[in-house]
Write a protein that binds this DNA or RNA. Structure first.
Lengths: 195, 195
DNA sequence: TGTTTTTATGACCAATCGGTCATATATTTG
DNA sequence: CAAATATATGACCGATTGGTCATAAAAACA
């Protein structure tokens, strides 16, 4: 990795949690300068403008989320274990896997009316998550783990929505109480559809 | 209502959808000046600073949400009808009851890490919504509409979370497909707990 | 090693930010 | 109606915004 690539990556890593916490619009280039201890001119050697840097930071947050998620799912053998591990991964919004909370929630709500590029990025990661979940359920049905009328895509959607909503509720209330209920409810629903 | 009160209210009404759409940090006083066609000095006669105006705008968005929701629930007779009406009220995120989408989602995600005052406002409205839902379920159990083991507070939380998460998913994807699945899932769960 | 290319610096830019204030105009009150 | 008060205006303020650029230092290449 060349010096330039190294610096670029360094900036992204420092910028990502700031964008995810404060939001894109509310984060200034001087915030990033302060975090990286780099000069303004140096920032613009690696990123032609703030939006490009913000997009890179969004991507980085998604990548961290995905990497940690894959790691959390790695040990799961059965399909039910995959679903439970997925739920557990999101079960502690006061100590979220990505600094600033779920980037899908943060960037999704900021971008939906104002930033089509980021909006589409979020949309794609959600689609990807949905595919993972519905795929696990389909496999579970084939394996006779789940009842044949367990609807993969519908439950994937319901589960994802509930996790994101629970994340919001817990972050706003400042504790995990609501998320715990969501976790319990989801696991119950999965058990009800298990054989 | 005095002239001052009238103008103050006028500013709030024009500002509320802008704050809800762009976010608090990304909305400037000149945005409000443009929307109201009022001078800068006039704004500061009625609001001592931007934060006070933003808080008033947040309150106004919540009030609109609540008023429209009460209206949507008004005709419901049975407890099940209340729950279904509540679900239907949130069922079309591409044409949301409040301009800019659900203010709980928008302000909640922006404020959770940055603005304790707004965060608490959102928290209170969520609590209020939870109370409405769990109250309706409790009443339904008493009326023998719902099974006695239908857990009011837990279902209220799960339902609220799913609606907010579905709202996010539909707004990011630009269509109501995900929300329709959420609606269907929630109504099924309610039916399963009905007598 | 010497040359070329890349990277880092910080002064500088116009535009915009939130906010103030003297002044002028309405509105309210007596 | 007249005096007192409240409201509206827009020029103005310092600070900050995103962004540029000549210059210098460092890395990459020959």
């Amino acid at each position: 990795m060349s010096k330039g690539e190294e610096t670029r990556q360094f900036i992204i890593e420092k910028a990502a949690p700031i964008f995810n916490t404060k939001g894109i619009a509310a984060t200034s280039m001087s915030d990033i300068m302060e975090a990286t201890k780099l000069s303004k001119g140096s920032m613009y050697v690696h990123f032609e403008n703030k939006e490009v840097l913000a997009c890179a930071a969004v991507d980085h947050n998604m990548k961290i989320l995905n990497t940690k998620l894959q790691n959390a799912l790695a040990k799961s053998k059965t399909s039910k274990e995959v679903l439970f591990a997925y739920i557990d991964f999101f079960s502690d919004p006061t100590h979220p896997p990505v600094i600033g909370g779920c980037p899908l929630l943060n960037f999704g709500t900021e971008a939906d009316d104002t930033n089509p590029i980021v909006k589409e990025k979020v949309n794609n990661v959600i689609k990807q998550g949905q595919k993972l979940l519905s795929g696990a359920i389909e496999k579970g049905i084939e394996n006779k783990e789940f009842k044949p009328d367990f609807n993969p895509s519908e439950f994937a959607t319901a589960m994802f929505a509930m996790l994101e909503g629970g994340h919001l509720m817990s972050r706003v209330s400042g504790n995990n109480d609501k998320m715990k209920i969501v976790v319990k409810t989801l696991k119950n629903l999965i058990d009800q559809n298990s054989l």
